[in-house]
Design a protein around this nucleic acid. Structure first.
Lengths: 222, 222
DNA sequence: GCAGTTAGTGTATACGTTACACCAACATAG
DNA sequence: CTATGTTGGTGTAACGTATACACTAACTGC
């Protein structure tokens, strides 16, 4: 089966759904498009994959350009390639999702002359192309992974309290959790370590600080 | 960001990991390559996506060509696009996996002048490109989905016994299951229905035949 | 009618999940 | 300095789910 010379070829791109917690909310990184189609519209960060570039390497690079952060958790989500998804020509987009601890963030607004912004999931603007669908799939995947992996720790700063962690879970799952049961479960999976520090912030009992045992890896549990 | 005219373009293909149960074994459909590269080597079925063809539609079509069956369960797995995965040029493959009930199969050997064959997972020949990796990912996904979906029913014929079903689970999970607990679990999820037929095949008590309540859908359970 | 073979059934135990309420420690105001 | 407000931190009982386990039922063939 020889390759066709013209047909069956497509522009290869990536898009990344970048989650982070900012202002006690789960937010997404969006960039404003400067060119048609969808000029002026908000879209997921991403770009065209270079001729000899690995797809995931491209996603990593675009993510670093957008957030200024390297070494973040990145996972392939799904590939979108409807013939009509880009009005210009056939464009395949391999979607990824990424989780960034907000303390590490330093968004370079206008790094590439693009407007960049963080948007709460509940208040997303209309998105270009099929990016809304990508966001939906990413959100589902993230929520599902909370149950059987340590993925939530990717959001945490180096030191955090159990209440901080619980807020993260509650934000992603969009429901309240029982404090005692939550703490039991977190400590039982033996992936966070108590430190001898506490945090004092307000007129109440100070909170014990914890750290992630293996911040690099996302483990599958149970 | 205008598109480059030459760089960043790739041939778009699909590959499908087709699972079926044959001879009481979990087997995969492979085709022998007639052209270089990897000429004569076994590979996953698939092909180049047409200029205006939907990616999943292409996978469905290739699957039908290979098995003669339509309406089978098909799910996107992962996308492979390493720059070096095809020695000729940049080729992106969107991998799918599919589950086919063996009773429905009528493999058209030589439909396209290709050798076609079913291979037990434990006895796969060396595969072309990165297809071995695709098989590995598909196998993991399938085993994981047994736990929380009704995906296994896709393998079943219209009428089957609980022992048949148990064999399917055991084959995929590669371990024995307790008969009473298995039956309890299957009936508890209320997705199979008793029929008033039995099957007599040997000098022993006949087995009750069941059918799948919603053969079309794969449900997520619990 | 006996032997061999697969089909079919119930219960007790262990384990994990859920629900739930009070005291502790600090800052601030009076 | 003490009273109040606010968040941090802890254990136990009830419940439901998952596991382990052994015998009888129904048929065929000899």
């Amino acid at each position: 089966m020889p390759f066709p010379t013209e047909t069956g070829r497509a522009v290869l791109t990536t898009n990344i759904v970048v989650f982070s917690l900012r202002d006690e909310q789960l937010k997404l990184l969006l960039v404003r498009r400067r060119n048609p189609p969808f000029q002026g519209c908000w879209a997921l960060p991403g770009g065209v994959v270079g001729e000899d570039e690995d797809i995931e390497a491209n996603a990593t690079r675009k993510l670093e350009e957008g957030t200024g952060v390297s070494g973040v958790y990145l996972e392939q989500l799904c590939t979108f390639g409807d013939p009509g998804r880009d009005p210009r020509e056939r464009v395949i987009s391999v979607a990824y999702y990424a989780l960034v601890a907000s303390e590490r963030l330093q968004v370079r607004s206008d790094a590439h002359g693009e407007d960049v912004g963080w948007f709460a999931l509940a208040e997303l603007p209309p998105l270009a192309f099929d990016h809304a669908k990508m966001v939906q799939v990413a959100r589902q995947r993230l929520a599902a992974k909370l149950d059987y992996s340590t993925i939530a720790f990717q959001f945490m700063p180096e030191r955090f309290t159990l209440s901080d962690l619980q807020k993260v879970y509650q934000m992603i799952l969009d429901r309240d959790l029982d404090k005692r049961n939550f703490r039991k479960r977190m400590l039982a999976m033996d992936q966070i370590r108590e430190t001898d520090e506490v945090r004092r912030n307000g007129s109440h009992r100070p909170a014990r600080l914890y750290r992630v045992a293996n911040p690099q890896e996302v483990q599958i549990i149970k």
